[in-house]
């Protein structure tokens, strides 16, 4: 097995992130790191070093799936890694991201009030009001945090579900960030990938 490097422990970051958000929702903003860094690697470096080395979520799934044996370790259904599903899921995810940004805008513009709840699977509203005291920051900042945390938690839950049923890292097959960064890399390195 390869020698352990510092970045092999980034799965701890995933746990810290969700724990922090459980106590103070404003920490949800830290999730932007997991959103911008992979895009940075892809846009400027033309690589997927984030997925390959630094993704804490992927590592967490590996840890739970392999080391803790929480995965059945069955082959991922083929359709989950097919292009139409990957791109379809990416479009769906970006649409939901857009809806979340729009909700933030509505709160910023004063058309909506701040909702201290998180929405799981874009459907189930879960009260999360102990994590925030109204007035601490502008309402839209808090609204974004609730929205972003919902997105992060939902995608992790989906990842955990497919981890249990299939391979530990089945989520990676259709992870929207993974699809997006791979597409950027393919466009950037067009001549060499033929």
């Amino acid at each position: 097995m390869n020698k352990k490097k510092w970045y092999n422990y980034l799965w701890i970051w995933s746990i810290i992130y969700f724990t922090l958000g459980f106590f103070n929702i404003l920490f949800a903003w830290l999730g932007m790191i997991d959103f911008l860094v992979p895009l940075g690697f892809a846009l400027f470096g033309g690589n997927k070093h984030f997925c390959n080395r630094y993704c804490g979520r992927g590592q967490l799934f590996s840890k739970l799936g392999f080391s803790c044996k929480c995965s059945r370790n069955k082959p991922t259904p083929k359709w989950m890694s097919l292009k139409w599903f990957r791109y379809g899921f990416l479009v769906f995810f970006l649409t939901m991201f857009g809806v979340m940004i729009f909700n933030t805008y509505l709160v910023a513009a004063g058309a909506e009030t701040l909702k201290e709840a998180i929405k799981l699977f874009w459907t189930f509203s879960v009260p999360w009001d102990w994590t925030y005291t109204v007035g601490l920051v502008p309402d839209w900042v808090a609204q974004f945090a609730f929205g972003f945390y919902s997105l992060m938690l939902t995608s992790t839950l989906i990842g955990l579900i497919v981890m249990v049923f299939f391979k530990p890292r089945t989520w990676c097959a259709f992870c929207p960030m993974g699809t997006m960064t791979q597409t950027i890399c393919k466009i950037k390195n067009k001549d060499e990938t033929k």
């Binding site: 390869n2 997927k48 997925c51 390959n52 080395r53 992927g58 590996s62 890694s81 990957r86 890292r169 990676c172 097959a173 259709f174 992870c175 993974g178 699809t179 791979q182 890399c185």
Partner: peptide
């Protein structure tokens, strides 16, 4: 999907 699970 270039996830890198194999490289690990």
């Amino acid at each position: 999907v270039a996830c890198g699970a194999c490289t690990v």
